[in-house]
Design a binder for these strands. Structure first.
Lengths: 353, 353
DNA sequence: CTGAAAGCGCTTACAG
DNA sequence: CTGAAAGCGCTTACAG
């Protein structure tokens, strides 16, 4: 058979079919049954040391690798090292940080991660949930679309191992790992207040998301604490994306009485805000001070460098997958809530204290 | 049985085991054999219309979803809609763009994507390749670590469907989708030259990567074309990351004869460069002009907005997965090479023409 | 057009 | 401690 694909490599070579070393091959090599080989692979204790050695040797010699698909189909009880990850918006680098943390731990455990990005679209979310169920993942890490995301609730009720990230669920108990949004927003607002600002705008992001509400709460608490009146016109949120940041900043600048400081609710909003500010030649921090939620990798390359609330995205990811492993191990254990602490990184976009 | 997990929801509820509607359930409901149900699911033509309707109805009523694991184990010939994705560095947002393109098309096709981020680490790459093989993915999309990445070559030789992204393979024929790096670099350099610059530095990134070499080539071609002498001290590359960008910029600035313009080889290098520039209070573009390879989402939020070579990351991803589907369909078809065009986006970091 | 049966590569009681 | 056998949920020749 002639194979175009390998012309460059060797004109006579034939496409080898995918190599298939099975349990049977190893068993024959080692002179035992496939059951015994299976036991060695699964570290079953009741195998004689000599037998184990012989099998391990046969595995090495044959280059055997278990077929994970067959393993997954056969065994219902144990974890088969496939994790489903449901991300609301892969364009938001905050989630990429989380993915990195998850992937890091998954790699240590030999788990594979199947990713589904649903772009805040419920239909798409549902499709991915169904798909991941059909793939019989061990469990799900998911950022629910809302705090009463019915698909995620259903998943939990059906008995799947689920860990929520970034956002929790109100009606159903679930392990949750998120940032301490309220404190983070509080600190950022307080920082601005201490610098003498009173007209502080908050570009909040999508107000239907719990995270947004918590950040608004933090902002308000700080304002109240320092006895500053809260003007509703200064708290604005539509979506949590770049375009909204841009647009709302323009609205804010057009206000009869301009804010002297802006606090943006996430990294995309910050970038949108910056674009408008630069376009209108507003200088930071002399004309307007700026703090952003999310301390991204580019924050220090901005001019001026951005003062920002750092969320430990990678840490959130790591905690989430560790919790998921525990949940897989014991589906009925008490649920926990992790509030990963945030940190205000003071740089130059608010001026100097 | 008491279940802590559902306390909040309903103190009496019991964890339902995962719902299992199988072929058998549907078959009984429809009064046919499981073989017939299977045929309907797989859109086999030889099913009587009435039967098909009855089965489809039973599927709907029972809420049946095929077990993809069993499907994958059983059927060797057809695509089972699981794609393996091997990414060298998920921290580089360029790859995130690619992932988005891939995910977009995968979603349309009902494919799941298993992701492996190997952080430029060959051992990790190997582990993920083995893992994805064991999962019997339909095919791989991979950015090889180098142009003679032996693991990827092996994969192809073994008969797996593989599409390379961002970087090609020299010794083995493979479908490849990448940016037209040389032209992109050429245009950026030419832009600087036309603005009157002669001492143009190029912070190239990791010189062991093919992509880097192509960009260096583009830079050199432009310099020669316009009769400008190439000073080796102005072409520097270590790694393709933030730290290198920062470091090399500092070296460049310390040169007896400073460059008047810098061209950075990727988005991470650009950010590193910017940090050093801002720290040293070098003003852009009046002290130094800057062009970056990669036009990221933050480019327009910089001050000044960055002139950059846009790579169509999302487009690369889309083309790659489409090619992969074709390759899965026909493993022996002639390989193709796509050079996705780049575009110079002129903004303000080089001054005005 | 449809069904009975074999089998994908494993795991896991069960028996010895 | 080990093996023979059943079976996970499907697909696919084969026979009718």
């Amino acid at each position: 058979m002639f194979c175009k694909r390998f012309q460059k490599f060797n004109i006579l070579s034939v496409p080898s079919t995918k190599k298939i070393v099975k349990l049977r091959t190893v068993a024959e090599k080692a002179g035992v049954s496939i059951a015994t080989v299976s036991r060695v692979i699964n570290a079953h204790p009741d195998v004689k040391a000599n037998t184990r050695l012989a099998v391990q040797n046969a595995i090495r010699v044959t280059g055997y690798r278990p077929n994970r698909v067959a393993q997954r189909l056969r065994s219902t009880t144990k974890s088969r090292k496939l994790i489903g990850l449901l991300i609301p918006d892969i364009e938001n680098p905050f989630y990429v940080d989380i993915i990195r943390g998850i992937e890091d731990v998954a790699y240590q455990h030999g788990s594979a991660v199947v990713i589904g990005n649903f772009s805040q679209d419920q239909k798409r979310e549902k499709m991915y949930i169904d798909l991941l169920k059909s793939e019989f993942v061990d469990g799900f890490i998911v950022a629910p679309t809302s705090s009463n995301d019915k698909y995620v609730e259903e998943l939990i009720k059906e008995g799947w191992a689920v860990v929520c990230i970034d956002r929790g669920l109100t009606k159903t108990d679930a392990d949750t790992v998120k940032s301490d949004n309220e404190t983070g927003a509080y600190r950022a607002t307080e920082h601005l207040i201490k610098l003498g600002h009173k007209r502080i705008a908050f570009i909040s992001g999508d107000p239907s998301i719990q995270t947004t509400l918590e950040r608004i709460q933090g902002y308000k608490t700080a304002m109240k604490k320092y006895g500053i009146e809260i003007s509703p016109e200064l708290i604005k949120g539509i979506h949590s994306d770049f375009a909204s940041g841009k647009e709302i900043t323009a609205e804010l600048l057009a206000l009869p009485q301009r804010p002297t400081a802006i606090f943006t609710g996430n990294n995309l909003l910050t970038l949108g805000c910056l674009e408008t500010l630069h376009q209108q030649k507003i200088s930071i921090p002399s004309d307007i001070a700026l703090v952003g939620f999310d301390d991204m990798y580019w924050a220090n390359s901005l001019n001026p460098a951005l003062t920002a609330v750092r969320q430990q995205g990678k840490e959130i990811g790591k905690s989430a997958i560790k919790l998921l492993y525990e949940r897989i191990e014991d589906i009925d254990k008490v649920t926990v809530n992790y509030n990963i602490k945030t940190e205000l990184i003071v740089r130059k976009s608010c001026g100097f204290e």
